[in-house]
């Protein structure tokens, strides 16, 4: 564990708390893509199956359980408790391609061990899981400030992982090409968002697309 990874994980944790706060405080899930949230649940469940096979640390185990539990809870909030505030007409990204593409890549590059295929699938899927959310944002052209804080924390988490990987490569010769490439793609997808967040939200203005 190094400081970059710890802060990254805490940002990931924070992003979920911010999202829960947004939903509970505004009593609405408007502006949030159910499809992205569903993809994150799939990511966590498929990646953290190793909860049953490997113990790494109490930290690792608790975080995994937290991510799985909260992602499913968010789906519940969106699908049941605050269903009326969700507009499916704005959430029209075709996730079939993301799921199919991730599975295909996982089948091509992994070594045909089920857990490994699912792990790779989850890594690829996570890198693109934000696309339905960003697509929704581009359709509406604006976002509530608290939603942008959520997206910033979520994007920042993977950006910090890039530094963590560089650090681990230098200090432990740790190499994980699949995570690196997928993580770089994931961070790059946020670049437009980061730019607008920096130029507008951090200067006290509302998040609006130019």
């Amino acid at each position: 564990m190094n400081i970059f990874r710890l802060v990254a994980d805490l940002m990931h944790l924070a992003s979920i708390f911010i999202l829960l706060l947004k939903i509970q405080k505004t009593r609405s899930c408007s502006g949030i893509s159910f499809k992205s949230q569903l993809l994150y649940s799939i990511v966590f469940v498929t990646r953290y199956l190793d909860l049953f096979t490997a113990f790494i640390s109490l930290y690792n185990t608790s975080m995994k359980i937290f991510f799985i539990a909260t992602s499913i809870y968010i789906l519940y909030l969106m699908k049941f408790k605050f269903r009326a505030t969700y507009d499916p007409n704005l959430d029209t990204f075709r996730v079939e391609f993301l799921l199919g593409g991730s599975l295909l890549l996982a089948l091509i590059f992994s070594d045909f061990v089920l857990m490994e295929i699912l792990w790779q699938f989850s890594i690829y899927l996570e890198s693109v899981a934000i696309l339905p959310q960003l697509f929704m944002l581009s359709r509406t052209g604006e976002a509530e400030t608290i939603t942008t804080h959520y997206l910033f924390a979520l994007g920042g988490y993977r950006a910090l992982y890039l530094i963590n990987w560089l650090w681990r490569f230098v200090t432990e010769s740790h190499v994980d090409k699949i995570s690196w490439i997928a993580g770089a793609v994931q961070t790059a997808l946020y670049s437009d968002f980061f730019y607008i967040y920096y130029t507008k939200v951090l200067h006290g203005k509302k998040f609006e697309l130019p």
Partner: peptide
């Protein structure tokens, strides 16, 4: 390498 060594990140 075992799964533990391979995927120790979240």
């Amino acid at each position: 390498t075992s799964a533990k060594e391979k995927h120790d990140e979240l």
